[in-house]
């Protein structure tokens, strides 16, 4: 029975970690390629969650929300990059911080005007609203298993996309040396729009997936933003693989901590981050 509880917590931790990966991989890609700090990344997560809430309310099902979050996120991200972030690539960090802080405030205000300031739960799709009996005394939510599967699928697509395709190699090259990419005849600006669109789509997909698990509420992106930063610091900036392992690590530590040592759980990941900064400042999973 104890073991079953532990097993459930480990699965929860992995699933939370994979959601974190969807958010932080976008963050790390956007910074790696564009050198832009996006504090509004957590708000994009929130927008995805509210999109799921709204669409689930209209259509009665979450299924439409997932492709809508991906497509809408890609369009929204491309629009944001085209209108605003493009101008801030060469600006100081301070300007980028303030620009994205302003976006947070405007997104929150829009959320408050369009929906309201209450908590809302989002129903788990009826098709998955059951538990899978794993052993005689242990069952696990089918929706959580589906989230695990979807996130792993997206992670695999990300790896293939970045490591195995021509566009992926251009993205990796741009992260190394943007001017060189220009010289090679690849339009870096289109690459930036693409990366920002993908990052936004991932964050909004994560929000839509998370909506039934933790309900939607004002400022829900803030906590995820901070944790994603910790993931990026621990994983090493610009590294998809680093973000993946760090996200799983943080997800497990946070979830198991909340379950077994709640007093220390809030600070555990920050202690880990401090240790990483002390011993491996370039990130736990950085090469060399």
């Amino acid at each position: 029975m104890q073991l079953a509880g532990l097993f459930a917590q480990v699965l929860n931790g992995l699933q939370y970690g994979l959601l974190l990966f969807l958010i932080s991989s976008g963050l790390t890609l956007i910074f790696g390629v564009m050198r832009v700090i996006n504090l509004a990344h957590g708000s994009l997560f929130m927008i995805g969650a509210y999109l799921a809430y709204a669409l689930a309310g209209i259509t009665g099902s979450l299924w439409l929300a997932l492709p809508a979050a991906v497509a809408g996120g890609a369009l929204f991200g491309a629009a944001l990059e085209y209108t605003l972030f493009r101008r801030f690539r060469e600006r100081e960090h301070l300007d980028q911080v303030l620009l994205t802080f302003a976006l947070i405030l405007l997104f929150e205000e829009a959320r408050s005007a369009l929906v309201d300031n209450q908590f809302h739960s989002v129903a788990i799709p009826a098709m998955l609203d059951f538990s899978v009996r794993v052993t005689a005394d242990f069952a696990y939510s089918a929706y959580r298993i589906a989230v695990l599967g979807i996130c792993l699928g997206v992670a695999a697509l990300m790896f293939i996309g970045v490591e195995r395709t021509r566009v992926g190699s251009a993205i990796r090259a741009a992260a190394e040396n943007a001017e060189m990419v220009d010289l090679l005849g690849i339009d870096a600006r289109r690459l930036h729009t693409l990366v920002f669109a993908v990052g936004t789509a991932l964050a909004m997909l994560a929000g839509a997936l998370a909506a039934p698990l933790q309900s939607v509420y004002p400022g829900m992106g803030d906590g995820f933003l901070i944790i994603s930063f910790v993931v990026v610091v621990i994983g090493g900036l610009g590294s998809i693989a680093g973000a993946f392992w760090a996200a799983l690590l943080i997800g497990l530590i946070d979830t198991l901590g909340q379950a077994y040592v709640p007093q220390a759980a809030g600070t555990a990941i920050y202690v880990l981050m401090a240790a990483v900064l002390l011993f491996r400042p370039a990130g736990l999973f950085a090469k060399g």
Binding site: F31, H93, L277
Partner: peptide, 29 residues
């Protein structure tokens, strides 16, 4: 000493994270 091991973007992220850690200490305990 921890935050200053980093620069630029990393400095921002680590100060943000450490600041929020203190926030959670007062918020959650």
């Amino acid at each position: 000493p921890f935050a200053l091991r980093t620069r630029g973007f990393f400095f921002l992220m680590t100060t943000l994270a450490f600041g929020q850690m203190l926030f959670f200490v007062f918020h959650d305990t």
